[in-house]
Design a protein around this nucleic acid. Structure first.
Length: 363
DNA sequence: AAAGCGGGGCT
DNA sequence: AGCCCAGCTTT
């Protein structure tokens, strides 16, 4: 049965595969770049970025020689900027310590920043046909449905199950094509909602379909419980600069006003000018000096997107002291939301440390 | 084990 | 509006 599944999938793939810029090449560098960009990002969104990136940095040497700032500029708008910094750092490692070679060596790939189990296997199976399985959002859905797996294949035991399933199904030849085909099936046929089972090469073996449970397998990711948050905000304009001042509604005095230190950097680096957007959202909520601002948030992330970076300390529960300032950066991860080069990041971290000291001094 | 990182596309 | 997406790192 396994052989039949493999054969039918590969035949289907030969007929239905989309022509994408990173296919038709076995260059590990090109495949690698595509996998990094495609991480948590849809194909349509990636294509223009991918073509620009490869035109600018056609080889790993070109990427290694580039300034980090220029790499980030090309990445701007894709999000998850840590991916770009890792890609660039890994390119430099490969050039400096491995002669610019991208070999068929899983241990080497896994040692690179930003390369986990999936990207390692995706690159090596496509470039060298190395028999490594991959599990991502599409193949995960296909496998869970094929075997009618009832648990959550994204977590714990389910995760171990789905990687074993992918491993067991893997052919000994045309591994790259098979991995691609599995994802393509999930993307074109075995979709999250309203899967096109009539067009599926595996329909006769699909347990979920036999049970009529295609839409319920795998189970949807659970959403965080909404939490109501209250705080006060003041927005002050001084010429072309903006000051944002926030405090928890429970605090009884305002923090000293500090200029938001990353504002200028954010506007300078981000074409979509995040600061005016913050201003727009806040004014849309009619935030005036001293007015209460009530937000229903479904998750920390959602709230922080809403108000951008300045509410970090509040939601981390570290605002027990009687005041709170917007100017404090909390973790390096929070800096990942901006396309900041490593030196810029270090500067902000230093400023943040200073702000924390000031804060402690006043409490 | 769980949180954190974004922006876009789709229903 | 929700929900989802070719994941990885950090805590």
């Amino acid at each position: 049965m396994r052989a039949a599944l493999q054969r039918r999938l590969l035949v289907w793939f030969a007929q239905h595969r989309r022509s994408l810029p990173w296919r038709n090449s076995r260059d590990p560098y090109r495949i690698w770049v595509s996998e990094v960009m495609l991480q948590q990002t849809t194909t349509a969104a990636v294509i223009p970025y991918y073509e620009r990136f490869l035109a600018t940095f056609p080889t790993v040497e070109a990427l290694a020689q580039a300034e980090e700032e220029d790499v980030l500029r090309l990445w701007q708008g894709l999000g998850y900027y840590r991916r770009a910094r890792h890609l660039h750092a890994a390119a430099r490692t490969l050039v400096q310590h491995h002669g610019g070679r991208l070999p068929d060596d899983p241990d080497l790939w896994r040692s690179l920043p930003g390369v986990g189990r999936y990207i390692c296997a995706a690159v090596l199976s496509q470039a060298f046909d190395r028999p490594l399985p991959i599990v991502e959002a599409n193949s995960l859905r296909v496998l869970a449905r094929l075997y009618g797996y009832r648990g959550d294949p994204r977590q714990g035991a389910g995760q171990r199950w789905v990687w074993r399933a992918a491993q067991a199904l893997l052919p000994t030849q045309r591994v790259g094509d098979f991995n691609q085909a599995l994802m393509e099936l999930g993307s074109l046929v075995c979709t999250p909602r309203q899967p096109r089972c009539a067009e599926c090469p595996w329909q006769r073996w699909c347990r979920a379909r036999q049970l009529g449970e295609q839409e319920r397998i795998p189970p949807p990711a659970s959403r965080p419980v909404p939490v109501e948050v209250q705080e006060l905000a003041v927005l002050i304009r001084r010429g072309s600069r903006w000051l944002l001042c926030q405090r928890p509604a429970t605090a009884n005095r305002w923090p000293r006003l500090w200029e938001v230190p990353h504002a200028e950097i954010a506007t300078a680096n981000d074409a979509r000018a995040q600061l005016p957007e913050v201003v727009r959202q806040l004014t849309a909520l009619e935030v005036q000096a001293g007015q209460p601002l009530t937000t229903l948030c479904h998750s920390v992330t959602r709230f922080r997107i809403h108000l951008h970076a300045w509410s970090a300390r509040y939601l981390r529960g570290t605002f027990a002291s009687s005041f709170y300032t917007a100017a404090v950066w909390v973790t390096p991860q929070e800096l990942d939301r901006f396309p900041l080069s490593s030196p810029q990041r270090r500067l902000l971290e230093k400023q943040a440390a200073k702000a924390v000291n000031l804060k402690l001094g006043e409490t």
